[in-house]
Design a binder for these strands. Structure first.
Lengths: 125, 125
DNA sequence: TTGCTATTGATATATTATTATCATTCAAAA
DNA sequence: TTTTGAATGATAATAATATATCAATAGCAA
């Protein structure tokens, strides 16, 4: 129950080569360059398996479908360009002692998402 | 085309009295205390109108339906309790010069969401 | 009060993302 | 090579929200 298929290789290559989280449609489109018959069903199935195996992680943004990126990246948060909708990794972290919560609340983790314009979409002056 | 209905008043009262963002189901349940016939369709319609009029704002969390809170609250971010699923306002902000983005990226706004246990759900020692 | 019509309640429908189904294909063991 | 069943592709089914429909109700102006 574990075969090395061209589809699976293509999908993992696309994600590991992207450098930013990709949507299922981006993965489908880029994967077709390697396997033109690639189907969206295979994309979803393979993503589910790769997540279960710990190779990739879903990136969740409010009101949007999951994107995917390699697991085991350094601490980072995400930047979404409001114009082109691409999401970028920001390799940085905020210090937990900069976060203030009410008495007796306990923080497990946080999600920080920045919104704005990426360098390709910011208006040139 | 603008009537003051008991339903609309009840919904706005529920939101303004909550002190934290509420889901549509929470609004429906709490609103029924004032108008027992209240329907989910009216909740959605009224929320849409209240957003359009600028009275309330949607609070978006990854992978979840919108919650709603009063507009024009001070700067704050959100804390979601992983146990009871309630979302709380944290009246604080992070300084934009603590955020680092690539050259030529421009930040418009950010979303910070903390996850953990609220005071009601944190295990007592 | 009455009458008009915006709003409501109940429910059907739309939307969007993801999963299930199943005949066909193909990876890989023999 | 041949064989076998896991994986694929195409598409139907599901799930979870949110919107549209429409007869009945109820604000509110006269």
């Amino acid at each position: 129950m574990e075969r090395n298929t061209r589809q699976r290789d293509a999908i993992l290559d696309v994600i590991s080569g992207a450098g930013r989280p990709l949507s299922t449609q981006e993965i489908l489109a880029a994967g077709k360059a390697a396997v033109s018959s690639l189907s969206i069903a295979t994309v979803y199935r393979t993503l589910r398996d790769l997540v279960a195996e710990g190779h990739i992680l879903p990136v969740k943004l409010p009101g949007e479908a999951d994107r995917y990126e390699m697991a085991k990246l350094d601490d980072h948060y995400h930047f979404k360009c409001s114009t082109c909708s691409k999401v970028f990794d920001i390799h940085d972290s905020i210090k937990k002692n900069n976060l203030h919560v009410p008495r007796n609340f306990v923080i497990d983790k946080y999600d920080l998402i920045l919104y704005g314009q990426c360098s390709d979409c910011v208006p040139k002056h």
